[in-house]
Amino acid sequence: MSSGIGNWRWLVLLGILLPLSAWGDGKVLKMATTTSTENSGLLNVLLSAFYRETGIRIRVFAKGTGAALKDGMDGNVDVLFVHAKEKEEKFVSDGFGAYRLAVMHNDFVIVGPSKDPAQVKKAKDAPDALRRIAETGSFFISRGDDSGTHIKEQALWKLTGVPLSTRSTEIIKGGKKKRRLFMYPGTPGKWYISIGQGMGKTLTFAEEKQAYTLADRGTYLKYKFGRKTGLDLEVLYEGDARLFNPYGIIPVNPKTFPHVRFDLADTFAKWLVGTQGQRLIANYRIEGRTAFFPDALPHAK
């Protein structure tokens, strides 16, 4: 039995040394991304392939787009992988990001109950689909969390011609007053329900209320076909180019934050838009279906 005690000591030693060794080799990259990216499962494939090739480990912090960008602005991470093109470009032009490379896109779909009370199936384009939901007063669940999906949804509502209300909340930052705007159709809590949660939660909320929502295809496929009892919602509108959702990779600017691992971030960004990364993206399947389309090398196979 004395060997048992010996094993126990080894285990303790191992427990102390393992984390130290991971910390010691220094090839760890911190990346902020959105929950939808992480939920899709694509990230696991990309990160493990990248690790096998380069030995660089990536630690992922998945949040809403707003919080992910904030992490970049605070210099908490080395690289960002998000999908809110305008905000990303501003992030770079404000000096927080070194550059932005287009990596891939997936697309959004409008999902809802199979009975389709708002006749979204007959919509001629994406804004028309939303207009039909508003006009029939059917439940619509909004992410309402400043995520890429929420930003896209608000842009689409602007195109519908449905009257929108704007509310602003005043906060104080750096001694100055700042306004945060919140734009929505209808009255919150009536048919337009803004829940401020992630994509998965929004889909289950929509299922419970048999409501419509805008979802990224990847998360929808996972919830529809990747679970034992699939989501009781159907894709009712898809295909409008305005529903495309481009992802960008942005290394945090080493001039603004000298402590970031720009060398590693740069390697990762270049790898992602190279043949290897683009090929993995093109061949990734969610429940047997294509969900992401490579943008740097559109014909990668």
């Binding site: 949040k63 904030k70 992490d71 400043d146 906060i171």
Partner: peptide, 9 residues
């Protein structure tokens, strides 16, 4: 929610 959005203030 505000934490998730990065609106710490």
């Amino acid at each position: 929610l505000e934490y998730d959005k990065g609106e710490f203030v």
